[in-house]
């Protein structure tokens, strides 16, 4: 009963133009899939592809902080990687342009209820390759305030803790955490306040990767990126209120 009501609302929310979009059937069998196609892909080509491997815990211990990692195997020339969550009030999570980075992203995210978490990689031919997995979660990850004890102190907002790890083939993994409340704006009285833009550069200033982040990213987001070559990195970015984020990872 409740589910059909949700489906009805979503169906209504999709404009008539949607009828013309080619929607491949969803292996994850989510009623939100057509709406996701409309929102993120429109008339672009979409294929479900096992090459995009998404790892999530089967059940989220903490729906405000669900670890997700995604790796694209063997697809040539990945231009952009996006992540979105079907049943979140704000579905878009992030968009990565892996300019000189490996097609890999690790992040932590808020989940409002049990839902597919999807990652899509766009190759140079314009085709979106979609992978995903269901995560089982208790309600309210996006719309409940975080525990008081975990709140970030004002003077720490935007501070970065980061570390580089060597990879076997000579590349490196970057893990970074940005101290930030990352408020979604969905809690009454708490405006949206979140990290929205990050850039990773090498020591010479060449941009290696660029990330656009959205509201569902977890408080004090933990992000993992991989690069084919080693060397010091510089991180820069800002939140939606133009608080600047700067860090060097030697």
């Amino acid at each position: 009963m409740q589910w059909s009501a949700v489906a009805l609302v979503c169906a209504l929310a999709v404009p008539a133009a949607f009828a013309g979009e080619a929607v491949p059937p969803d292996p994850l069998d989510s009623v939100q899939w057509p709406a996701m196609v409309h929102k993120f892909f429109r008339d672009q080509r979409v294929v479900f592809d096992d090459a995009v491997q998404v790892i999530v815990p089967p059940a989220a211990e903490d729906s405000m902080n669900v670890p997700v990692s995604a790796r694209v195997h063997g697809l040539p020339d990945v231009q952009e990687i996006i992540a979105f969550i079907d049943f979140n009030p704000i579905p878009g999570v992030l968009s990565l342009r892996p300019l000189q980075a490996l097609p890999y992203i690790g992040f932590r995210v808020r989940v409002q209820q049990s839902t597919p978490i999807r990652v899509a990689a766009r190759t140079a031919d314009g085709v979106w390759h979609v992978g995903g997995a269901w995560v089982d979660a208790a309600g309210g990850g996006c719309t409940l305030p975080s525990a008081v004890a975990s709140r970030v102190r004002d003077e720490d907002i935007g501070k970065v803790a980061a570390r580089r790890w060597p990879l076997a083939d000579g590349g490196q993994r970057l893990k970074l955490r940005i101290a930030h409340p990352n408020d979604t704006g969905l809690i009454s009285g708490t405006p949206a306040f979140f990290v929205e833009e990050l850039h990773v550069r090498d020591a010479g200033g060449r941009e290696l990767a660029s990330l656009a982040l959205h509201e569902p990213i977890a408080e004090s987001p933990l992000l993992t990126l991989e690069f084919p070559v080693a060397g010091a990195l510089a991180i820069s970015g800002r939140d939606n209120s133009a608080t600047l984020i700067e860090a060097r990872v030697e």
Partner: peptide, 8 residues
């Protein structure tokens, strides 16, 4: 635009 205001 809603500015985030510190509690303090």
């Amino acid at each position: 635009y809603e500015h985030r205001l510190p509690d303090a």
